[in-house]
Design a protein around this nucleic acid. Sequence first.
DNA 1: AAGAATTTGTGAAATTTTTCACAAAGTCGG
DNA 2: CCGACTTTGTGAAAAATTTCACAAATTCTT
Lengths: 208, 208
Amino acid sequence: MVKKTKIPEITITRLSNYFRVLDEFKRREFYNIASYQLAEEMDINDSQVRKDLAYFGQFGKPGMGYEMTRLKEEIQKILGLTRKWRVALVGVGNLGSALLAYKGFQGQGFHIIAAFDSDPKKMGKKWAGTVVYDITELKSIIRKERIEIGIITIPAPAAQEVANLLTKAGIKAILNFAPVRIAVPKNVRLSNVDLSLRLENLSFFLSR
Amino acid sequence: MVKKTKIPEITITRLSNYFRVLDEFKRREFYNIASYQLAEEMDINDSQVRKDLAYFGQFGKPGMGYEMTRLKEEIQKILGLTRKWRVALVGVGNLGSALLAYKGFQGQGFHIIAAFDSDPKKMGKKWAGTVVYDITELKSIIRKERIEIGIITIPAPAAQEVANLLTKAGIKAILNFAPVRIAVPKNVRLSNVDLSLRLENLSFFLSR
DNA sequence: AAGAATTTGTGAAATTTTTCACAAAGTCGG
DNA sequence: CCGACTTTGTGAAAAATTTCACAAATTCTT
């Protein structure tokens, strides 16, 4: 399945978006979908769609397009969404609580197993079904629970420190919402969600 | 200032990140910064940094690099952050409240002037200093308050409907947090923040 | 069953983005 | 003020990504 060819990261992002489009078309009770339909929906070129999918195999039928159920399954396999991912969230503030309550993660196989905070008032309680632990317990719980992904939703100043804790606990990937760039070892995958950055981007285009 | 040359969108994103790096260096009391320092910090090539900045002018001095205060100001001008932006937020749920409380926006000139919700229990109250209005008042308030940017933080099913309302009210840009692709007229700038997408991306790289 | 119509998968071409590499401009120490 | 350094700004080269375009596979129509 996984080819030797280097796959552009943006292809992976598009794969997620194809998945979303398929969900919408599924509700319309289509059985097949052609590359040009996916492309139109996403405002891209149709051969882009075919190239992206061709990195991973030959899923389509000439003259017919792609069988929707099959394609959804294939994308799920490619993205690693056929298994459950065990996730920890650090920082049960406004944003952290919102993410704990967010239904979208659960559906895609991302299970927030544990939350951490340094505020004694929050510890021991449950937020949207997830127990909040003292951050001093982070290492032991992440190891015991075999948690692989960490979400950082604490203020900027402490973000690097928490990233270090997560790394030392053996986490494999971090999704960082703190508005600060953090450094992690090369074997840890890091993804930043900078909320202001998106607004700044809009601001640029509105200003021209 | 604005050249005829087509500026890659990714350059704009990097500009925001240069801005973050400058903030961090400033605290260390540096006066100048060289392209290779910015580059190192961001794990990119130094000529990339110079190219990005050169789209907008000649801000550096050979042998010396860039004067930090000046560069920060220039980037602010480029990104349109020297003015205030009037923003509305639709959907005061978990995520919406978190964004209302988020300090980062304010600092960059993004002021959330009004929030909207359809839940009568929330209307009329204030959340983190912002009044929550009935969504039926959206059009009139957006016009009266001259609001230009809308943030959508409602569940997926109603997102398109709200986008239509915002568009009809004359909004110029939308930041969409609903996990669904929405359609807007070409003159409205749309940016999607799909939280699951980021986790899916991590999942892909962890699965390989 | 044959011809028309679709649509895939993929080399090749075009375009975009990144990196290289270096002249020119400026700094610094003595 | 000179010679050694440093670093910018930018053409040119390289690399990556997107688009074109078409043979081959498959379905559809009659």
